[in-house]
């Protein structure tokens, strides 16, 4: 049984459970997250990620043995990109996952009420998981794959927004991951633009109801006494906007 509070939960759920693919994953995520307005709406669930990323960040490359530098620098840069892009990402450790997935979910979504009857066979609750836009899974071992499959199967995200990268993700998979995140970013921005537009329209409707006419109309008409318009009250109480009036003048053939 899973309850939830979507107002505070992540819209995108990313599960990263792979050490080898980590640099690519982090690079992809970092690039996608760099322009996100609200990084808190994304959760990264990873086994080696949290420890690796934070440890790498604390190390100066020159302090490492020379033969390890290239690999570590690559990882460090990937981790830096991701963490700087989204410093508040919730991270879940391998320990958390292996011990108790319910705790893991609760950590990601502290405002949800979660009760997952867990067993390793994957036969568990049929209730959907509140994974809003996407569930992206990268798993390398069987244990993680079981959890990944379980989560993905129950995600509320539409099918086209579910991506199971599974074992050994290829570059095309990462591109798909990036595309999904970017598409989600675009839709969120458009939703915000739509909301702002709706607010503007509401404010305008209220202002128009009060003044009956725009400031522009008044400004221009102050020096341009309006021609009679059919249906207009003498006191101007139903005076039409300036542009509309221009049109009405035109319909009357005046110039």
């Amino acid at each position: 049984m899973i309850g939830r509070d979507n107002r505070h939960g992540p819209k995108i759920f990313v599960l990263v459970l792979d050490g080898d693919a980590l640099p690519d994953a982090l690079t992809a995520l970092g690039a996608s997250l760099a322009t996100r307005a609200d990084p808190a709406d994304l959760a990264v669930m990873a086994s080696p990620l949290e420890g690796l990323a934070r440890r790498l960040l604390s190390l100066a490359p020159e302090s490492e043995p020379e033969q390890a530098l290239t690999h570590w620098q690559r990882d460090a840069e990937a981790a830096r990109v991701t963490l700087e892009a989204a410093p508040d990402l919730p991270f879940i450790t391998r320990e958390c996952l292996s011990q108790d997935p319910q705790t893991a979910l609760q950590t990601i979504c502290p405002n949800w009420t979660i009760s997952v009857p867990w067993d390793r066979s994957g036969v568990i609750s049929s209730a959907p998981l509140p994974l809003g836009l996407a569930a992206l899974l990268i798993a390398q071992n069987e244990e993680c794959q079981t959890l990944a499959d379980w989560l993905l199967a129950r995600a509320e995200a539409p099918n086209e927004q579910r991506l199971n990268l599974g074992f050994g993700a290829a570059m095309s998979d990462w591109r798909k991951l990036c595309e999904m995140l970017q598409r989600a970013q675009m839709e969120e921005a458009l939703a915000r633009a739509g909301q702002k537009a709706a607010e503007c329209r509401a404010a305008r409707a209220e202002a128009t109801a009060k003044t009956r006419e725009t400031a522009l109309a008044r400004a221009l008409l102050d020096g341009n006494p309006p021609l009679p318009v059919p249906g207009e009250q003498a006191d101007g109480s139903n005076r039409t906007p300036f542009w509309q009036r221009l049109g009405q003048r035109a319909q009357k053939g005046e110039s």
Binding site: T35, Q182, R183, Q185, M186, A189, L190, A193, G194, K196, A197, C200, R201, R204
Partner: peptide, 19 residues
Amino acid sequence: LDYDGPVIEDDVADLCRRF
């Protein structure tokens, strides 16, 4: 303008074009 339709003013436009 007091424009009351949806407007995109940043690089999200590149995503709109791409998709």
